[in-house]
Design a protein around this nucleic acid. Structure first.
Lengths: 214, 214
DNA sequence: GGGCACGCTAAGCGAGCGCTCACCCTTGCC
DNA sequence: GGCAAGGGTGAGCGCTCGCTTAGCGTGCCC
């Protein structure tokens, strides 16, 4: 019933910046455990065990269990902002950029489901101070997507009445992938990304531009 | 077993069927607490306290803390199925029925956010047996929405390539409302329901048959 | 080669957890 | 009035939690 150690493959490694090797192993173990059972149901003994260490080792690298969640959440949100920012500031029409933003954001949620789950669903487990910081990053996420949609509306490519509401819905659709996506299911992250990009273009009324790519 | 009034006030009272009054108060307190802090972070002392009782009183009406979650989850899922089934089996075109299904489902998630949060996000906290039972109800939820979309495709009203994928996306969009909706925010459940019904009709390519927007 | 900083462990602390138990109130029936 | 039944309580059990502390092994610097 235990998972083999697969460091490569589905999950990218945005944790390269976590410098002492033991600290990174602990962080990775925490991501796994939090994603599987949730923050509150995860014990520090479990995290340390997954990292092959004694329970006390955790406190050499992190002050509290919450600091682990905070670090994971910040790194994950920064990655999310980076993904959307790259797509938003690329060359091309708003239609193309929105499609790229959605598909890459969805691929991240599906492929790195363990990380994305923690990032998206454990925010409330943070203390007030840490939560406030993370909420700032979330506003950046919202702003990137809203920016693309606003541009598309200005250029006449999109037909959107409620820009903020549609932005919320687009992000909501992408984020919920982390809840239901199953690695052993019938769809690859790439397939879901492509499907969702198509659905989102329909949502913003961008169906008329370009050929129906399928 | 039919409730006279449903789509009114914020939180309906689907807990009328919980028979001893004290048991209902405990259930309601548990819904509140689970929604606020999550199942694992909620203590039985907190639940009993919210219901104005001593910690021991809980165990007169429920065998364990998990039984509370199980009961909440089953009743909530049954309500969700009922909402979608009512919309799916009503009179009218698939377009109209899909719009009604989405808007009523969204209103339920937004208006009864506390309940919906527990129902949608605490499934993994259930034991294997209870979880299997609830998953059966989720399959019914999926089937109702898929049924409407299939009908719309057959009748030519909808233009959908991947029916199952689109069904998943529609449900996903609705469910995620429970995560982000804020009672003190700028939108009412009715407004979100109307917006989302519009967006979903666009997703299934039903834009041409109906009025431009609501 | 001796001192020492550092990464780590074994053991365990106080607190709070889910849950139990002995007992106390009402209520209703005779 | 006697008394069984059942909803409720105060106290507390056994356990596990997050986290601490004393001490050990190893590698580096002088």
């Amino acid at each position: 019933m235990s998972t083999a150690e697969e460091t490569s493959g589905a999950e990218a490694q945005p944790w390269g910046e976590v410098t002492p090797d033991a600290a990174r192993r602990l962080l990775l173990a925490a991501v796994e455990a939090f994603a599987e059972r949730g923050y509150h149901a995860t014990t520090t003994r479990d995290i340390a065990g997954r990292a092959g260490m004694s329970p006390a080792a955790l406190y050499i690298h992190y002050k509290t269990k919450e600091e682990l969640l905070h670090r994971i959440s910040r790194i994950g949100h920064e990655k999310a902002v980076a993904i959307l920012r790259t797509a938003a500031r690329a060359e091309g029409t708003p239609t193309r950029r929105l499609a790229e933003a959605v598909s890459s954001f969805v691929r991240w949620h599906a492929g790195g489901r363990t990380t994305a789950r923690v990032v998206q669903y454990e925010l409330d487990s943070l203390g007030a101070e840490a939560r406030a910081e993370i909420l700032g990053l979330r506003r950046q996420v919202d702003a990137e997507v809203r920016g693309i949609i606003e541009e598309g509306v200005r250029s006449g490519e999109f037909d959107v009445v409620d820009v903020q509401g549609t932005t919320l819905a687009v992000l909501s659709l992408c984020i919920d992938v982390a809840r239901w996506f199953n690695v052993d299911g019938p769809r690859t992250p790439e397939e879901v990304g492509a499907l969702y990009a198509d659905l989102v273009l329909r949502m913003v009324g961008a169906g008329e531009t370009g050929p129906a790519q399928r």
